[in-house]
Design a protein around this nucleic acid. Structure first.
Lengths: 137, 137
DNA sequence: CGCCTGCTTTGAAGACTGTCAAGATAGAAG
DNA sequence: CTTCTATCTTGACAGTCTTCAAAGCAGGCG
C-alpha cells in the first residue's frame, strides 16, 4: 500500500519539459506553463487526505492519537474531551481510517488506533517540496 | 500576519501538564491523556487551511502557482487546463486566498497570484512534528 | 448460557460546498 | 468618452458533509 512514491508536485520546477507553449495563441500576461505541475489524477488521489484533515474534530483526534506516548489510543479515551456523541467520533475515525491517516487494531474489548506516520510525512513533503527556492522575493 | 508561532501540536508530548486525570473514574484501557495535545482553538484555526487543500482543483491551482518559476501566476493562465468555468476558478482562488495560502496582487489588467510559503511550511511542520519519535514500532 | 460494556452501522435532518449562468466592476485602448 | 478585455460577485441548484438517535455486532465476565 504505502507506495512511497516521490512527488515533485508543488515546488521544484521539474517541468515535464513538454513541447513548450506549442499552440497557445494567447496574447500574453505570463508565461504559459509547460504543463500542470501536479497531475489531475494525483490531485484527486491526495485531496481526500487533506479533506480529512479539514475538520477541527478530526484534527484533534489525529493529534491526540499521534501524540500519545504509547503511539496508540483506544476510542473510549478519545471520546472524553469532545462535545460530540460517540457515533460521531466513530464516524470521524472512519474518515481518518479511509483517508489512510490512521489504522485501527482490535485487541480484546478495545480497539486501538495509531497514526500512519508515512502518510503524514508524504503530505508534509508535498507542501514544502517547493520551499527549496527561497528566491521567491 | 505571519505569526510564525511554534506549534507543538501533533507529536512532541508537550503535555500542558494540567492537573492530570483528576476525576476520571474510568476503569481502564489506556492511560488517560493529560490533555488534548492540540487546543480546540488551534484546531479550529488550522482546519480551514487543510480544508482548502481538500479539493483536487484547489490542489492543482496551488501547485501551479507555487511551481511557477516566476513565483506568481495570473488567472488567465490558470483557467486554461481545467474543465470548470471561469467563475469557479475565481471562487476556488478566493477560498485559497481566505485560507491564507495564496495572495493576489493586481497589476494593470491582470491579477497575479503567489503562494504563501510560510503558511505551507507551517502546515507541513504540523504534520511531521511528531515524527521525531521513530520508536513508533 | 445470559448479560454487560465497547464500538460501529444505519437512517434522517440540517448545514455546507461546488458549480454554472448572468450581471457587475476595474483598468486599458482608441 | 466609449468600448473592450479580464476578473469578480451574486443567485440558484444539486450534491455532499456533519451530527445525533436508535439499533446492531463483537468480545469478556459471572
Amino acid at each position: 500500500m504505502s507506495k512511497q512514491k516521490e512527488l515533485p508536485l508543488l515546488g521544484a520546477g521539474s517541468a515535464t519539459s513538454s513541447s513548450a507553449s506549442s499552440a497557445t495563441s494567447a496574447s500574453s500576461c505570463c508565461e504559459p506553463l509547460s504543463a500542470q505541475s501536479i497531475a489531475t489524477a494525483d490531485a484527486i488521489a491526495l485531496a481526500p487526505a487533506f479533506k480529512a484533515l479539514g475538520d477541527p474534530i478530526r484534527l484533534q483526534l489525529l493529534s491526540q492519537i499521534a501524540s500519545n506516548p504509547e503511539g496508540e489510543c483506544c476510542v473510549c479515551d478519545l471520546e472524553t474531551g469532545f462535545d460530540v456523541s460517540g457515533p460521531t467520533i466513530s464516524h470521524h475515525l472512519k474518515v481518518l481510517r479511509e483517508a489512510g491517516l490512521i489504522t485501527g487494531e482490535r485487541r480484546g474489548t478495545w480497539i486501538y488506533y495509531s497514526a500512519v506516520r508515512g502518510k503524514l510525512s508524504e503530505l508534509a513533503g508535498l507542501l514544502v517540496s517547493g520551499d527549496s527556492e527561497p528566491a521567491a522575493r
